[in-house]
Amino acid sequence: MTPDPLNRLVAQLAKLPGIGEKTAQRLAFHILRAPGEYAVELSQAIREVKEKVHLCARCYSLTDSELCGFCRDARREEKVLCVVETFADLMALERTREYRGRYHVLHGVLSPLEGVGPEQLRIKELLERLNDGKVEEIILATNPDVEGEATALYLTRLLKPLGLRVSRIAQGLPMGGDLEYADQATLAKALSARREL
């Protein structure tokens, strides 16, 4: 008979993605054995993430204040806006340290099969924030799959008439990757979209 509080913790941990019953048990024992303040800090961190983190009022990335760091940072270019599916995609782009413009997070892609239409995404909000006329170029950085493509095409149709420059991130072989490791569909596409030098 294991104590109920321990069972409850294991049950909660096992709900996390990628965590099975056994791993949940190991984590629970780890928390139990760790010095007292660890459990307190962990529970506080969990509570705070729910209480304090919300969507940025402008770009819909994550923040703990009214506007996120990307929107508040005056050094970032106002003219360029990069549209991504998720916050995780935004973080991936940030890691490059190349992009100095602003973002807009859609929170999904257009997928009739999943019942996600334009109203379910932050598209209306995107159009509204363009009203101030500061943005000149929009980079569409949705994934290169069927739904990501369709979303990019849909946005293009909305944005082009506004007189904006609309661009799509390039597709093809990963840099520094070996040709031999590329999958056949990617390689076939890269081959057909080859450029003259």
Partner: peptide
């Protein structure tokens, strides 16, 4: 096949389907 399923689902929404949305899936 995936693009086709998506478009067919969209078609079944009938006249309520936004034209620009259909355009996007037509092109896909």
């Amino acid at each position: 096949a995936r693009a086709l399923k998506n478009r067919n689902r969209l078609l079944r929404e009938g006249p309520a389907a936004e034209p620009a949305y259909l355009d996007a899936y037509d092109e896909t």
